[in-house]
Structure formats: C-alpha cells, structure tokens
Nucleic acid binder design. Structure first.
Length: 491
RNA sequence: GGGUUGUUAGCUCAACGGUAGAGCAGCGGCCUUUUAAGCCGUUGGUUCUGGGUUCGAAUCCCAGACAACCCA
C-alpha cells in the first residue's frame, strides 16, 4: 500500500470535520428532486420552484454572491447562492464544500442578465463529500491508463466517453427490440460449462466445490442454443458475455459480449438478410442515417461508413482473384512469391489454404470498410457449417465484414449427428474427453435445419460509434492490477 | 512473445547534463450577475522503481513495473 499524504486531501478532511461539527451528515440521505438536471434544464421556465441534486463542478466566487454549476450525467445547471437567500446555516455549510461534492438544492428559477438559466438557492442540503479532488475541469482526464483503471473519473470528466457508453446501451437495447419484434425469444444458457465448446479458443478454468467439478467459462453459447433447437424452440437468441483466455489488443478483451441467433428452418442466406436489416435498424436508431462518420476525439474525420442496401455479396475465391489474378491456377511456390510481392507476411509452416487466408485478411478484409458478405468459404476455414450441395469444397456460410473487421458470421447449421461427430473429432485432435457427448446425444434426437448467426457486439459498437479501441466501449477492460493508494485516515 | 513510445505538483503540461517551472485546482485577500470569471498574494515534488556513469542526472546508460501503439 502506498500511503498518500497530500495537502488537498487534508483540506477536504478538515471541511468534512467542520460539517460534522455543524451537525451535518456529510454523507447524507435521500433527496427528492424535480427531475434530472437535464430534465429540469429542458423544462426550464422562470419563476418555478425546483429541486435538483448533483455534483458541484464549478465555482465562480463573486464575493458575497456565488455562481456554481451542479452537474450529473444528463447535464449542467447553474445555481446562484447568496447568504441573504439561503440563510446563515446554509452559508456555513457552503463554506465547507469542495468541487466534486454532491449537493441538493431547492430554489426559484431565473435567468441571469447574461442569459444563463439559474436556480436561486433557498435551501441547500449536503448530500455527499468527495474526499479527493476530481480531474481538471477543462482538460479532463487524458491519461488513458487512468481512464481505464478509474473509469468513474473518465465518465465524470469526459463527455465523449459518456456518450460512447450511452450509445452502447442504446445499441444493445435496440438489438433486443429488433429481435423481439421478429418473434425471437431471449434465452440464457450456462456460462460455466463442463466442456468449453462451440468455438476454437483457450478457455478459463474454474471449479465447483460442492460437486468437486472442474468447469470452464464458456467460449461460446452455441452448443447449448442448439440443444434448445432440438427442444423445439424455433427462434431464439442469447446476448451475453463470452470468455476467451487469449491475448489482449485494440480489438480483443478476454471477456466480450456476443449475440447468437438461431432460426429453425432458415439458412445462412436468411440470416444474412436478418443481420443486414438489424444493423441498418441500429444505424438509423443511433445516427438517423445509413451513412455516418468515424471521428477521433479531436473531431477529425477518419472515414465514412456507408450501409446503403443491398449490401455487396461476393464469393471468397472471386475476392482473392481480384487482388491476386490467377491465384487459384498458380502453384504453391508461385503463391508464396505473390505474398512477398503483395507485402503479406507468411510463415513456412502455413498450409496452402492458410496462405490464401492471409491474402484474404490483409488484402480484402482489412481494406473493406463498407459492408461485404463473403460467401462460399473453403470448408477448411469453417469446420462446423454445412457443405454446399453443388460444391462440397465450400460451405454455406457468410462472413460479414465492415470497418476492416469481421463483424458477424452466419451459418447453415450442421444438424447431422454423424458428420458433426467427425468434425468435432477432427477439431479436438483425437482427445476423446474434449467431445461434448451430451451435445451429440441431443443432436441424435433430431435438430431441425436452421440458420445461425453471431455478432461480436463490441466490434459492432466500435463500427457504429467509431471508437478506435475496444477498451473505449467496455467500462472496465482487463488490465494488470496495480497498487492502490490509501488515505492515511483510512488505514 | 518482439519492437517503438511514454510515465514530472491533485489535473493538463514545460524544463540543452547545471537552482524542477507554468496554467487550472487548493489556500489567504478584493469584488452582490459570473460562464474555463477577473485581480493580488501564496502552499504544494520519492521527476514510476532500483542500480550505474558524472563534480553534478527529470535529462545519459542498464535492469524492472505499468500503459499506449505496431507486429506475431
């Protein structure tokens, strides 16, 4: 523990002690308000009695008159304090306030001669003491590490950050609205699973004491949602957290939010239509338009995303041929030489289809900003989807790319238990205990043909808001823990 | 895992190897309509940590911690 001794903290502690001596509880009680600060401001008219509560965020001292700002997440409103208006007791309480404290006020509204909506405070109630100072009111908090570690400070001082999280909440709410309107039912399946299936990723391990059972945090809900298809639930979705014990980057957090949707008797093409409609619905709700800009925090334009329908659809092979003509008729040696010419890094142990996939990722995916459904992918890339009837070397799936990243995959789901078993065995590399026999048992009772899709919600939010890092749209991204400083009075 | 960059007052940032500073916040004044209020005065530092080089290190070197970005 690092013990912090600091004048600023000492001053605040003294003021807190003064409040005690005045008989005031510095960590007060409930306070009835007329509405949030944003609501009161929106309904502002002169001569009304209103009550608001919020943090003290600015203090303009004019001698006997004080102009302060009270703020909450919805906005800011000026209050006017004068001993003649609020009385001596309130004035002595006010003397012991600091920026950051929570206050409740009651008073009559008026507009100052500079045109600022203001409350003339007649009653002042102390609601909570901030024992520590808040970040600079003008520059905010720019230290990215502290913005992630102490998100509350980021939210207090950076409006841009607040707005991103509001947009995230709205996107998630509108996804649920959209799917409910189309008759999909939200379900919840286990996050702790005896076998972590449904994707290829390293899981987190945990243990249940009473059952003496090792469990894994799920890497995907897929295999449980398919059990529900067997159980006769025809239109279902789950929108919740997945966990993967892998690296951290601008686009990866170990826990992330995933939407999975399953629709009995549909196929990947119907799922593509569904996801296209859904994302357009979200763009309209967020931006009021299918065209919107990505800007950095200084407001500079980074790019414009166009979601106008219909979205482009293209076969995997055709996309490769466009960036590397003659690719599929050239020899493996030629292909590796082409990679070098195109500046695509490959390693010697890569198989042919992995080399092709590198070309796809670097020359197609990363350069595709507007929506593109990639179809007819080689079956090696997607072992858990149905093979195409006309061309068994490809599978019936789409990969939706927007903003240079994969946003959503959609499959015609495999429902043949024998084929499924073979695929799972190939995937597990011969480790029998890794096969989810319970899932295969369910499939043997009959799963209807179905379409399924997944949407990485964090990447979707990044695409819709223009956030440049996943850490900007997850409240508390995983960081290595740090020593926390402790106040002397708390030790 | 590798490379690059960064870490200085509560916050935002300066400081050629030569006395660690500014703005805001804080504290003390002045001002009864201010808007990043203003004016006068003033407090505040383990320069991320530990070594080293040097007469002298925030600055140069080595190791470490944490973070950001790029690569794998």
């Amino acid at each position: 523990m690092i013990e912090e001794t600091n004048d600023l903290l000492a001053v605040r502690r003294q003021k807190l002690e003064m409040l005690h001596q005045l008989g005031i509880d510095p960590f007060g009680a409930a306070f009835e308000v007329s509405g949030s600060i944003g609501e009161v401001r929106a309904a502002f008219a002169e001569g009304q009695r209103v009550r608001i509560a919020g943090r003290l965020t600015a203090h303009r001292d004019m001698g006997k008159s004080h102009f302060c700002d009270l703020s909450d997440a919805t906005g800011r409103l000026q209050i006017y304090l004068h001993p003649k208006e609020m009385g001596a007791t309130a004035a002595s309480i006010f003397k012991n306030t600091d920026l950051g404290d929570f206050l409740g006020v009651e008073g009559e509204t008026f507009i100052t001669k500079t045109g600022e909506p203001t409350i003339r405070v007649s009653e002042l109630v102390f609601l909570s003491k901030a024992k520590r100072p808040l970040p600079d009111k003008w520059h905010g908090l720019s230290d990215v590490e502290r913005r992630y570690r102490q998100r509350y400070l980021d939210l207090i001082s950076n409006e841009h950050s607040r707005k991103l999280f509001e947009q995230r909440a709205k996107i998630i709410r509108e996804i649920r609205n959209f799917l409910h309107q189309r008759g999909f039912v939200e379900v919840e399946t286990p996050m702790m699973q005896p076998i972590a299936g449904g994707a290829a990723a390293r899981p987190f391990k945990t243990h249940h004491n009473a059952l003496g059972l090792d469990l894994y945090l799920r890497i995907a809900p897929e295999l449980f949602l398919k059990r529900l298809l067997v159980g006769g639930c025809p239109k279902i979705f789950e929108l919740n957290r997945n966990f993967r014990n892998e690296g951290i980057s601008r686009r990866h957090n170990p826990e992330f939010t995933m939407l999975e949707v399953y629709w009995a008797y549909a196929d990947y093409e119907k799922m593509a239509e569904l996801v296209e409609e859904m994302i357009c619905h979200l763009a309209i709700q967020i931006h009021g338009s299918l065209k919107f800009d990505h800007r950095n925090e200084e407001g500079h334009l980074l790019r414009t995303i166009h979601l106008d329908r219909p979205w482009r659809r293209a076969r995997y092979c055709d996309l490769i041929e466009q960036v590397a003509p003659g690719w599929f008729s050239s020899t493996p040696v030629d292909r590796r030489r082409r990679c070098f010419e195109l500046g695509v890094e490959i390693s010697p142990e890569m198989t042919d289809f992995e080399v092709t996939q590198q070309i796809f990722e670097k020359c197609v995916e990363e350069k595709t900003m507007d929506p593109l459904f990639v179809t007819h992918l080689p079956k090696e890339l997607v072992p858990l989807a149905k093979q195409n009837r006309e061309d068994p070397s490809v599978v019936d799936v789409y990969e939706l790319i927007i903003n240079g990243a994969e946003i959503s995959p959609g499959y015609s789901e495999l429902n043949d238990p024998e084929v499924q078993r073979r695929r799972l065995e190939e995937q597990s590399g011969g480790e029998a205990h890794a096969i989810d026999e319970d899932f295969l048992l369910a499939l043997e009772h009959g799963m209807p043909p179905a379409g399924g899709l997944g949407v990485g919600i964090d990447r979707l939010v990044m695409m819709l808001t223009g956030a440049q890092s996943i850490r900007d749209i997850i409240y508390f991204p995983l960081l290595r823990p740090r020593e926390v400083e402790v106040s002397p009075s708390d030790v």
